[in-house]
Design a protein around this nucleic acid. Structure first.
Length: 629
RNA sequence: CGGGGCGUGGCGCAGCUUGGUAGCGCGGGUGCUUUGGGAGCACUAGGUCGCAGGUUCGAAUCCUGUCGCCCCGACCA
């Protein structure tokens, strides 16, 4: 390809719209343009990169025996209603773009494809003899992200590889899951990325085991907690650790303590010399479900620990599985009562002095006159369904709180705490669930001498063992060896292809621009004609360009009538791994070869270029994974 | 959605506080000179100052509304 024909537009200044370096470079180097928030055009150079990545993904997926397909992006609502995800994905903070077609049928633009693929599996898979199978596709996904960010990093339209496997039993699922783990490691390594595999929360997709692949980068949106011995790594939302030892509380009998105005752990600890680990803090929240159910939740945590909201949401979902799906969890306060139109009075609730045994009766139904509806200027009501508030708290407690023999907690009375309370004093025990957020510096479970360290990561891949959640909902069954109908076991496996491209830039750049890993570079080589006014240079460059092309090398020829400096700057900016400069030495058949990464340069006879480059390229290319038998 | 910020030639910005007929750098075009790390000189094209109202003799500037974009939080490949 000739640069003069490439529609290459590079920018000298950083665009105002970009914040992180990879986004700036992709814009400056002419790889992409924003069309609207979270929607980007893939320009010719970027499209080549995306094709390169896709091809690597394809080769590694095919090598595991997976089958490539292409599924519809426009998906009927009823499919999503059958899996129970329509409401959650479209209402409230849902991320599915959706529309009504001319027949009045509701459709969604696919943010993911579990529903479609499971419906297909139900149709196509009849017998255990067909199993296992693994289907994948590489296509554009649509997600109306709450906050699109950082260019291709979090777009509302992006390219994803998603795969779905079907199995006769859990052991087979585990095996394919392990194969995908291996394939993913090879994919990211071949793309030239440094990644770390971490335990992850399975989120809205559902299911049991899941693992994320993080490109380590400062600009990453995720916090990874890992031990220095590399034996444990997890996303912070999932991470577990050992809490520090609590400071024991003295043996004095339980008594009330006047604590006027001391509504925070800090104030309470400061005023009476308590250690925060001696206090049980109680949080009041409310969980809203798709069917309108609103469940008040009381969470007990040790005072020095923080709540992990992802763990909390998972716990609530596990306890209340049959309300159409959890939509939202938020602190229950006056503002929430109003915005969710709960029709409840919180006047009897002594905020700041809550104990784990707060009486259900404190949830008082407000009289109608207190239900403020239709106040001008008030936000429009969010719930699409009439809320039905449960009158009993769901009581949850983190083990760190339950392990305390004696502790300080709110007395459920304004300006008053209990000191020396024990769980026996407080009635029935709350349900025990891990709810605390692991923190950097915490000791590790596998080896308490190890500490968790924080790094930031960009999630480029995620693999899940889904189990039978979707196959049961969508009645995707097969006949097992014994002749009985059984729901399929499922796994799903995603790679953010367009995100990966930007993550690669985030990890591979310098002050002059992008330094693409050879395997995903849009071109391997750029031949720069130093001066178009020198016929010898032009002639030699054209000859080399032709030879490289004939040899199958992906090569750019910078034939623009620009000064050499401009062309060097652009070559660095767009990040082509090898630069061949045809300049002063052309008369004596000498050219210069410059490596983008590291910048080392060497003079070569023009005739030696091709064999030399072929050898360099081969040296950097990994062995191709053999095809699946 | 809550909080913060920004919309002025293609790009990056100034001007706005204190209203007076729009400017700088880069980029584009033409010519001459230059020619190995984003050249110099000259000429030139290009802007209803996001949009809609309002105040005013007069609005980029003040007021109201609205749309768009970016950043911080909840969502995720």
């Amino acid at each position: 390809m000739r640069v003069s024909r490439l529609m290459l537009v590079t920018l000298r200044d950083d665009p105002a719209e970009a914040e992180i370096v990879s986004h700036k470079l992709l814009l400056r180097a002419g790889y992409t343009r924003r069309i609207s928030s979270g929607i980007y055009a893939y320009l010719p150079l970027l499209w080549r990169v995306l094709q390169k990545i896709s091809q690597i993904v394809r080769e590694e997926m095919n090598a595991t025996g997976a089958l490539e397909v292409l599924l519809p992006q426009l998906q009927p609502a009823d499919l999503w209603e059958r899996s129970g995800r329509w409401a959650g994905y479209t209402a409230g903070e849902g991320i599915m773009f959706h529309l009504t077609d001319r027949q009045g049928r509701e459709q969604g633009l696919g943010p993911t494809h579990e529903e479609v693929i499971t419906a297909l599996a139900a149709d196509l898979i009849r017998s255990y003899r067909q199993l296992p199978v693994n289907l994948y596709q590489i296509q554009t996904k649509f997600r109306d992200e709450i906050r699109p960010r950082f260019g291709l990093m979090r777009g509302r339209e992006f390219i994803m590889k998603d795969a779905y496997s079907f199995h006769a039993d859990e052991a087979s699922l585990r095996q394919t899951y392990a194969e995908m783990d291996g394939a993913y490691r090879r994919i990211f390594a071949r793309c030239g990325l440094r990644t770390v595999a971490v335990e992850a929360d399975s989120g809205a997709i559902g299911g049991s085991a899941s693992q994320e692949f993080m490109v380590t980068a400062e600009a990453g949106e995720d916090l990874v907690l890992a031990s220095a011995d590399a034996r444990y790594a997890a996303n912070q939302e999932r991470a577990v650790s050992l809490a520090s030892e609590a400071v024991p509380l003295g043996p004095d009998p339980c008594q009330q303590l006047a604590t006027p105005g001391q509504t925070s752990i800090e104030a309470l600890a400061a005023a009476h010399g308590f250690d925060p680990s001696q206090i049980v803090k109680v949080l009041l929240l409310a969980a809203r479900f798709a069917d309108g159910t609103v469940q008040p939740v009381l969470v007990s945590l040790r005072g020095d620990q923080q709540l992990n909201e992802v763990k909390l949401a998972n716990a609530i979902t596990a306890v209340l599985a049959d309300h159409g799906g959890l939509l939202e969890v938020a602190p229950l306060d006056g503002a929430l009562v109003q915005s969710w139109k709960l029709g409840v009075s919180l006047d009897a609730i002594p905020f700041g002095y809550l104990g784990p045994n707060l009486d259900d009766a404190t949830l008082k139904i407000a009289t109608l006159t207190n239900v403020q509806v239709g106040i001008s200027g008030a936000p429009s009501p969010k719930p699409e369904v009439t809320p039905r508030l449960k009158r009993q708290f769901l009581r949850l407690a983190d083990p760190t709180a339950l392990e305390l023999q004696r502790f300080v907690c709110g007395a459920n009375k304004k300006d008053s705490h209990r000191v020396g309370a024990s769980w026996a004093d407080l009635g029935p025990l709350p349900q025990t669930v891990d709810l605390r957020a692991a923190q950097p510096g915490d000791r590790c479970l596998h080896d308490p001498s190890q500490q968790l360290e924080a790094t930031r990561g960009i999630e480029v891949g995620h693999i899940f063992q889904l189990g039978r959640k979707y196959s049961q909902a969508l009645e995707a069954t097969f006949t097992n060896e014994a002749g009985q109908e059984e729901a399929l076991w499922m796994g799903c496996y995603g790679i953010g292809v367009s995100r990966l491209a930007q993550a690669a830039v985030e990890q591979n750049h310098d002050a002059n621009g992008i330094c693409w890993p050879l395997a995903i570079a849009p071109f391997a080589v750029i031949v720069v004609i130093a001066s178009l006014n020198e016929p010898l240079q032009v002639e030699l460059a054209e000859r080399l360009y032709g030879e490289l092309q004939a040899a199958g090398v992906e090569v750019l020829l910078d034939d623009r009538d620009e000064r050499a400096g401009v062309k060097f700057k652009d070559a660095d900016l767009i990040g082509i791994p090898f630069r061949v400069v045809v300049g002063r030495g052309a008369a004596s058949g000498q050219i210069e070869l410059v490596s983008r990464l590291g910048g080392e340069r060497q003079d070569l006879a023009a005739d030696d270029l091709l064999p030399h480059l072929m050898q360099r390229i081969a040296a950097e290319s990994p062995v191709t994974t053999p095809a699946h038998p």
